[in-house]
């Protein structure tokens, strides 16, 4: 992927650029809001990472101007932890996702993968199919290999999130957001517990584990 990183802090920018290049992406970096605006309008990127605080134009203004100018490049906004209000603002102004500093690289990477490959199957879709798994989104029925699975509503939502993002890693925090609308990380192992229950229901009577655990990152639905 071709990625634009707008970040004025050298260390963070270096850490992001290096990490993303190591996993095979092409990275351009802008150190100010004006540079970011220039780069984002003169080249085509698959995804961009905008820091909320940038010298000159701040990240939010850059995003507003890009969206007003018709640039639809998926954007992930980086915000400081002590500014809850910024996150609301970011999403309202056209950010596709946000991440609070400090963050783990794997978290950023997983989120970039999700927003860059949008659109996911549209909300209006009647069913989702991955390998031998089948979700009837209207009747809220899940099947594996044609056999009906007895899922709790929240387990169904979790499976849907995994299947919509087949081939991509879903991190713990992404699942917390999408399944329970939590923007914080509880001390309890909510995600692990629910994944293991879902896994037990999916795998009953099957050889192959339907959910892949990606160490240090999160979970993926088996798609090949």
């Amino acid at each position: 992927m071709k990625i634009l990183i707008a970040e004025d802090d050298e260390e963070t920018a270096g850490f992001l650029t290096q990490g993303l290049r190591e996993v095979g992406h092409v990275v351009s970096r802008a150190a100010s809001g004006n540079d970011a605006l220039f780069l984002a309008t003169s080249e085509t990127f698959d995804v961009m990472v905008l820091d909320r605080m940038l010298p000159g134009l701040d990240g939010l203004s850059v995003l507003k101007m890009l969206r007003a100018g018709g640039v639809r490049t998926p954007a992930l906004m980086l915000t400081a932890v002590s500014r809850i209000v910024d996150r609301v603002e970011a999403l309202e102004n056209g950010a596709d996702d946000y991440l609070i500093k400090p963050f783990a690289f794997s978290e950023l990477h997983a989120r970039l993968n999700v927003i860059a490959r949008r659109p996911t199957p549209p909300e209006t879709e009647r069913s989702l199919n991955v390998m031998d798994l089948e979700l009837d989104l209207q009747k809220r029925i899940a099947r594996r290999g044609g056999r009906r699975l007895d899922l709790q509503p929240r387990e169904f939502t979790m499976l849907e999130a995994l299947m919509r993002n087949a081939h991509r890693v879903m991190t713990r925090t992404m699942l917390l957001e999408q399944v329970w609308d939590f923007d914080f990380d509880p001390r309890t192992n909510i995600v692990e517990t629910h994944i293991s229950r879902l896994r037990a229901k999916l795998n009953a009577g099957f050889e192959e584990d339907a959910i892949i655990t990606v160490r240090g990152s999160g979970y993926m639905i088996r798609s090949e």
Partner: peptide, 14 residues
């Protein structure tokens, strides 16, 4: 809804 979601999330662990 918020309360239901929280209970639902924590119930298995608890």
């Amino acid at each position: 809804e918020v309360a239901e979601r929280c209970i639902d999330a924590l119930r298995p662990d608890v």
